[in-house]
Design a protein around this nucleic acid. Structure first.
Length: 368
RNA sequence: GGGUAGAUGCCCGAGUGGCUAAAGGGGGCAGACUGUAAAUCUGCUGGCUAACGCCUACGCUGGUUCGAAUCCAGCUCUGCCCA
């Protein structure tokens, strides 16, 4: 296999856990893992300024090919010189392929060998999202890391459906690599196979034959129990090459992330920190704080006294409570900023503990 | 002073003889959200009780009726119009 385009460097491997710390190089800079990618579906992390993300320690954002294909469309990215310049984000970007939208969008129509047929929610037109169109779009967007189009199915799917999905994903992976042509962008493959160990193995082994720059674990956090998720994650991560980043797609809660790092995963993304911020839920050193609760009406204290983020330095719980109750956009912004900071701080803490080979201890403390 | 419209649960508001502890909102309480179409979705929300059930409730007082938030009378208060 050719060397990864990401120059993946393993820095530390925990002695009593599969947790590991690494650095790698994208077209936009050096990245340190384990890491969390805020989700910026539509070329914006909802309610967040790029400078706030940068200050919180975001290294790489996730954007979505399907949504950006529909609007503003690839030609805008070509004209504007790519997503980084377009949204004024200096860091790295990973684009998801649209595979998840096959699973999540109500207007998805049909799956064929050619691709997935959607009805656009923008103008109703039928769109065939093929592996080639996904990659061409991701090239236009200009992300640092492209994802292959995969067929994401509910984790509770039966074996026959799961096998079919992973086999399609496999063939689409071949086509995706070919579609990249001369682009310097990196590309990750996605392991599928629902909750069947044999299928996960089959999927991983097939994809590892091809020169991908990293490997993702897909099809989790889509209906299975926590224990099942962790088992499949553990099994799959162990199959993947040690010299490539491992990315658990769409996961998860802080605890999910901790569990997955322990099982050898390097990269994560999740909508949770920005999604729940909209409804006033915040992660703190003392657990989740639901700021919509009236008990915070007169709470003249920071959201989390242990937190070093600008929001906790400046604003009271009472103010954040008020912003949530009145559904003021600033509340979403501030609480999202805090939550993203919380995730990054967690990842920094995890990474530092791995570098000092005390991850397992941290893991055990955090699980309590 | 005269006329007229109204007074419903924490708030707004529907109901206009029995199916009404009373629609629907809001507020409150609780929960969900994991590669984000959708600031969304789901419970509960008079009191006591584990529950059966009991009590209290549609401005106040009385009346009609087997039965009244709903009909009648008087009163109180509020909005609007006229003097």
């Amino acid at each position: 296999m050719p060397p990864s385009r990401l120059s993946f460097q393993l820095e530390a491997q925990a002695s009593d856990s599969r947790a590991r710390a690494a650095t790698f190089q994208t077209l936009h800079g050096v990245i340190k893992s384990p890491l969390f990618m805020p989700v910026g579906t539509q070329a914006t992390v909802k309610a967040q300024l790029p400078e706030a993300l940068e200050a919180a320690g975001s290294q790489i954002l996730l954007a979505n090919t399907y949504h950006l294909l529909l609007r503003p469309g690839p030609e805008v990215f070509r004209k504007m010189g790519g997503i980084h310049r377009f949204m004024k984000w200096p860091g790295s970007v990973l684009t998801d392929s649209g595979g998840y939208q096959i699973f999540s969008l109500p207007h998805s129509r049909s799956m064929t060998e050619a691709g997935a047929v959607f009805q656009s929610y923008v103008d109703g037109q039928r769109i065939l999202l093929s592996p080639e169109l996904s990659i061409q779009t991701q090239m236009a967007i200009g992300s640092d890391i492209m994802m292959v189009l995969d067929q994401c199915i509910p984790s509770t799917a039966d074996e026959k459906a799961a096998r079919a999905a992973l086999q399609v994903t496999q063939r689409w992976a071949v086509r995706s690599l070919a579609a990249r042509e001369e682009s310097p962008q990196s590309m990750f493959a996605i392991v599928q196979g629902a909750l069947y160990p044999q299928l996960r193995r089959e999927s991983a082994e097939g994809l590892m034959q091809m020169p991908f720059d990293g490997f993702a674990i897909g099809g989790l956090a889509v209906g299975e129990a926590k224990q099942e998720r962790e088992d499949v994650c553990e099994l799959t991560a162990a199959l993947l090459p040690a010299d490539r980043p491992r990315y658990l797609m769409g996961v998860g809660t802080p605890l999910d992330v901790l569990e997955a790092v322990h099982r050898g995963v390097d990269m994560f993304d999740c909508i949770i920190p920005t999604q729940v911020a909209k409804r006033g839920s915040c992660f703190t050193s003392r657990g989740i704080v639901e700021l919509r609760r009236s008990v915070y009406k007169f709470a003249d204290e920071p959201l989390d006294p242990m937190c070093s983020c600008p929001v906790c330095a400046k604003y009271s719980r009472a103010y954040l409570h008020h912003l949530t109750k009145t559904q003021e956009p600033l509340g979403w912004q501030l609480m999202g900023q805090h939550n993203i900071h919380f995730y990054h701080e967690l990842m920094r803490e995890i990474r530092q503990s791995i570098l000092e080979d005390r991850f397992l201890k941290l893991y055990q403390e955090k699980r309590q």
